[in-house]
Simulated scan of single mutants.
Amino acid sequence: MAKNFVLGIDIGSSGVQSVVAGWDKRGEGLKILGVGSSPSSGIRRGKIIDIEETSKSLKASVVMAEKKSGLRLRSGVLSVGGTDLAYVRSKGLIMVSRANHEISEFDAARALEQCQSNIEPLTNREVLHSFALSFTVDGQFKTPDPTGMVGSKLECEAIFITALSRDIKNVVRVAELSGFMAEDVIASPIAAARAVLPKRHKEVGAMLIDIGAGTSSLAVFEEGLPISLEVLPYGSANITSDLAIGFKTTIDEAENMKKNFSASSASSKKQAADIISARLSDIFELTNKHLKKIDRVKLLPAGVVLTGGGARLPDLPDFVKDYLELPVRMGDFEETRMPDGLDIGPWSVAVGLCIMAYDASQGRPGFGSNLTAKTKNAAFRWLKSLLP
């Protein structure tokens, strides 16, 4: 039976995580076949600052995943992160094209394109993802899918996830130097959300918080779609640095102290708790500011889902629950399984990249498919034209 394979590569601040996954025509779903991890070099706060060093880290990670899977892949789907990821919302209005005023998929696509045309010029930025949040027919009836309805005017409200052009170009270049072709580049919070946010949570309202080493990524969902996104400039590495300063010890010892916090003596445990709590307060104060900006403070019924390598701090869910006054749970994979013994958190982005590739192969509506495909393909043609 013919089988399809995908390579998902998450370029993070502390490590490059690679996942090889596959599926066949029997409809048995996505299976993880091999994983690889390599310490990051040339990356700071989720952004590539040294192309050659990053390419070495990426290649080492991919080679490990390929060896475990028994496959050799020459292309993959990669993540892009960092504090310059952003979003913008826009509206667009068109006249329905058919004489009988029946709205077609073409009309919906035109309305989405008009939304993008109405955005202020994006200086040195490119659209990674576009999502039609809702359509309004003749200024009265709102629907997520207007196809087949009758009306003379169609308005669309959409959200666009953007990244700096140089950041996307750097990701593509790193892949090429490592001997791989970048099939697609996806915003890391969108990929992580696809892996660990349950469909029901995304429908009723939930926030993903992905705590990495150098940054913490936020993505808020309602009615199955992202309504906001932000990457904060703090992560678990900041906690390690704070502990090293507070205890006048080495970074390695501070990292071990953070991981084994519950085993510390009573006196050192209180001091460590104060240091960790102070830095977490920085992260979740900014998180609350984000929720306030979008009028969702204490108003997400499904609450918060935590993921990322930095999300395994002892008692973190309780801390977040008290700070944000929302229900909190740790993220888990519902559509695939990690090899035994591996923590889910550090792999959520790489696994999400693979799931999104699988979704596209199955023709499922979702991130990057259907109405968003034209926008993304155009951006990629532009990127490749700039590469030597």
Rank of each mutant, 00 (worst) to 15 (best):
M1L: 13
N4F: 10
D10I: 14
G12A: 11
V16F: 10
V16Y: 10
K25D: 14
G27R: 05
K31M: 00
G34E: 05
G36P: 07
S38H: 14
P39G: 06
I43E: 07
G46N: 05
K47H: 03
D50Y: 04
D50A: 10
V63K: 15
K68R: 14
R72V: 12
S79E: 03
T83L: 11
D84E: 03
Y87D: 00
R89H: 10
S97H: 13
A99D: 15
N100V: 00
E102H: 06
E105D: 15
Q114V: 12
S117K: 15
I119H: 00
I119K: 02
E120I: 06
E120H: 10
E120T: 08
P121Q: 13
F141I: 14
P146Y: 12
T147C: 05
G148L: 03
V150N: 02
S152C: 07
L154Q: 08
E157G: 03
A158V: 06
A158F: 08
R166T: 14
K169L: 15
N170V: 14
A182Y: 13
P189I: 12
P198Q: 12
P198V: 13
K199Y: 13
V204Q: 07
A206T: 14
E223S: 00
S228P: 02
V231N: 07
I239D: 10
A244P: 00
I245T: 11
G246H: 04
G246E: 01
T249V: 03
T250L: 03
N256W: 02
S267V: 05
R279S: 10
F284D: 09
K293P: 00
L299Q: 11
P301Y: 12
P301W: 11
A311V: 02
P314A: 04
D322A: 01
Y323E: 06
Y323P: 00
L324P: 01
E325D: 09
P327G: 03
R329H: 09
R329G: 09
F333G: 02
L342G: 05
I344H: 03
W347G: 01
W347I: 00
A357Q: 05
N370T: 00
L371F: 10
L371Q: 06
K374R: 07
K376H: 08
F380E: 02
W382T: 10
W382I: 11
